[in-house]
């Protein structure tokens, strides 16, 4: 019969909780305890306002409060109010703020300022470029190709593009870029090693062992140490040419160069207009065979214009006119058919 929690204004508690003494003096004087009608009359006589009777509070929620309470206890509504509404509000406010152009601009400027202030800190400053592993000419080329006005911020350096530029230089085989401490832009270069001189359509060029262009060459005499190749498509078969040249060391003194014939096979050109015609496949083996022949019978020292190895199973010698005439004469002697 007792409610779990007695209502606040329950008359039972009011009756039991009636003060028996110890009331504040001032209140005693203002509103004497006793008959409420008497106290009201006394208060009137003293010119005081009639004491406010405590308003009985209804513990029941109003209909609206009850509905709001239930609405608030609805899970979807709760989630919407907790997360959806703040998100919506934030979005709305931000979008209204940025709807005006000058706000957008000033915001961007503020961001740029902050960015600028960070970027211009001395920790991020790059003041020199240090190039390692490059010849002085190449270093000069690199400095010309990659133009950076030092000092600059490391944020402003576009390292991948610079790397691309440096790798685009012919003489550079491999390059790497780092920003090192104390503001140094380090460039590590691996140079291409010149291996051969090619007389191509664009004039003389120096190629590396893989056939990649290293540099242009003014005159053959500038690099007498490098062998010479010629002919179209020679740059694609530089490796084969180098193999052949390695084998041809016994005749190095007589060697003029290699000529690419019809973009498919090599001719070894010696002095005295001698040629060794190598096959498409197995040029090195054919060359070894010729060297062996030369060692055994001194073929190349004789009056032969060409050693034709294009068919590797049937090496053929082409004699000069005079030698041919001699040959016929000797054959005539043998057969007794001489003039």
């Amino acid at each position: 019969m007792q409610p779990l929690r007695p209502p606040l204004h329950s008359p039972a508690t009011a009756a039991s909780g009636r003060p028996t003494g110890g009331k504040p003096k001032a209140q005693m004087r203002a509103v004497p305890a006793g008959n409420p009608r008497v106290s009201a009359a006394v208060a009137r006589a003293k010119g005081l306002k009639p004491a406010e009777t405590p308003v009985k509070r209804d513990p029941a929620p109003s209909r609206a409060a009850y509905r709001m309470n239930r609405l608030w206890l609805t899970p979807t509504f709760r989630i919407a109010m907790r997360f959806g509404l703040p998100a919506l509000l934030t979005f709305g406010v931000v979008s209204i703020y940025f709807a005006q152009g000058n706000h957008r601009e000033s915001f961007m400027n503020a961001i740029a300022d902050v960015r600028q202030s960070i970027e211009s800190r001395p920790e991020f400053r790059v003041s020199t470029m240090l190039i390692e592993g490059a010849s002085p000419e190449l270093e000069q080329d690199i400095r010309e190709a990659v133009v950076v006005d030092f000092p600059t911020s490391s944020f402003d350096l576009d390292l991948p593009a610079m790397l691309e530029q440096i790798r685009g230089l012919d003489a550079v085989a491999e390059a790497s870029l780092q920003i090192r401490s104390s503001g140094v832009l380090g460039v590590d270069i691996t140079e291409r090693q010149p291996a051969i001189v090619w007389r191509g359509p664009q004039g003389l060029e120096v190629l590396d062992a893989l056939g990649h262009r290293v540099a242009a060459l003014g005159a053959r005499g500038d690099r007498p140490d490098l062998p010479l190749v010629a002919g179209q498509g020679a740059q694609d078969a530089v490796q084969e040419a180098l193999e052949v040249l390695a084998i041809a060391t016994p005749v190095a003194g007589r060697l003029r160069g290699l000529e690419r014939m019809g973009e498919r096979r090599w001719d070894v050109v010696l002095d005295r207009d001698q040629r060794i015609l190598l096959p498409e496949e197995g040029a090195a083996a054919a060359m070894e065979q010729v060297m062996a022949l030369d060692r055994a019978q001194d073929v190349l020292g004789r009056d032969v214009t060409a050693v034709d190895m294009r068919n590797i199973h049937r090496p053929t010698l082409r004699l000069s006119e005079a030698a041919m005439a001699d040959m016929r004469r000797i054959k005539g002697l043998d057969t007794g058919d001489a003039k």
């Binding site: 209804d58 513990p59 029941a60 929620p61 209909r63 009850y66 309470n69 239930r70």
Partner: peptide
């Protein structure tokens, strides 16, 4: 009705 509301709430 109000009493029911109180209890339910």
């Amino acid at each position: 009705e109000r009493a029911i509301r109180t209890a339910v709430q």
